[in-house]
Amino acid sequence: MAPLSWDLQLLNVCAALLLLLAFAMLSQRRIVTLVDLLALQGAVLCVATALVAWRTGKSHLYLSALLTLGLKVLFLPWLLRRLIRRLDVYWDTEPMANIGGTMLLGLLIVIFAFGLAQPISALANTSTKSTIGIAVAVTLLAFLTMITRKKAMSQIVGFLSMENGLFFAAMSATYGMPMVVELGVALDVLVAMLVLGVFFFQIRERFESLDLHHFESLKEEK
């Protein structure tokens, strides 16, 4: 097996970092730290995108990387931190019962994701195809993060992290989506964030907490 070129090796490092960050998010209890991890994930993603852009010479990927930097590393984390401050949940932690069990489940999911990515990698003709498995795993882990959280704030972080995973999957499978789609997705994420920010204030006003188990009282009685 020929040794990998340095840029590909760096890309693999980035992918590994992403996966590690996903696990870190899965086990993190403090909300503020979750936002930091998200920003970090965005940064790694930005580097990876720029690397791929440099490797393939596709200029629109530079734009993508820039977009990632602006939106996912700077703007959204800033927005989230501001929200956290204004909502006064700086010291909130998630009451997670079984972190060890969740991590084990995450492990199983990673194995499943790699199995799943095998045929896709065989079909893809990109040089980054080895990272598809990691991208799928990051997406699924982010989903798992959402499921195991009870605070609205951390679910948002999970949601954004899922978007990161999808973005990475698209990049490794086909060198990114068409620019139009990417811009559209970025806009969607932005708008979703703003709308959810408004929602949070409403939710807190109604329940005096951002804990989602209060939502259960909204269910219609039989």
């Binding site: 499943f112 199995g115 799943l116 045929p119 699924l140 989903f143 798992l144 959402m146 499921i147 195991t148 959280r149 009870k150 679910q155 989602l212 188990h213 939502f215 259960e216 009282s217 909204l218 269910k219 219609e220 039989k222």
Partner: peptide, 28 residues
């Protein structure tokens, strides 16, 4: 069927997650 509607957001997410895994499993 209404039993499915538990009112917990995480449960609904779980439905989505399990459905996704099952579908992916079928694809696999």
């Amino acid at each position: 069927v209404a039993w499915l509607q538990q009112g917990r957001v995480t449960t609904y997410l779980l439905y989505g997650f399990v459905t996704l895994l099952v579908l992916l499993g079928v694809v696999l």
